[in-house]
Amino acid sequence: MEGLPGGAFVLTSLEGVLNHGRSRSLWYLLFGTACCAIELMCTGASRYDFDRLGMMFRASPRQTDLIITAGTITKKMAPRLRRLYDQMAEPRYVIAMGGCTIKGGPFYYDSYSVEKGIDHIVPVDIYIPGCPPRPESLLEGCLHLQQKIARQKLADWQEK
């Protein structure tokens, strides 16, 4: 963004405006399947205050830009997760929160029911390791996602 001398006008690109708006109003889906959801709730509450990043939870996937997969995804849950993702408005983003969603986490061994990573169900933008990750980790992941959105080109959105 460039301010013109005199300060009455600002010059910017369409891309810049859209990226700015999108990265600062990431509404996320209320989606918690295990203990990571507790940390997600904590991050949303007043101490860590997600709202100051423009992140507000919505109960419907049709109103969201972001899904934070907070918790274990079982094989039975996987098609439901895909369906929720498909219902979200584009452009849409995915944060894989916690070890379970990255590679099965503590359920990698000896488990018949847990999906070994969600990245073959939905495309993941940001991985946040931890079991569960602290709210600080989640906040940093969201900041990384904002930076990623700020770098996007118009052509990328059409592909997504």
Binding site: Y109, D110, Y112
Partner: peptide
């Protein structure tokens, strides 16, 4: 009841059960 509706990999609580993506603890 608990398994996915289209489950076709047998009975996972049997001791001799195995599946392609099942990883046993080393």
């Amino acid at each position: 009841l608990l398994l996915p509706e289209d489950w076709n990999q047998g009975h996972p609580m049997r001791k001799n059960w195995d599946a392609p993506d099942f990883v046993r603890m080393p």
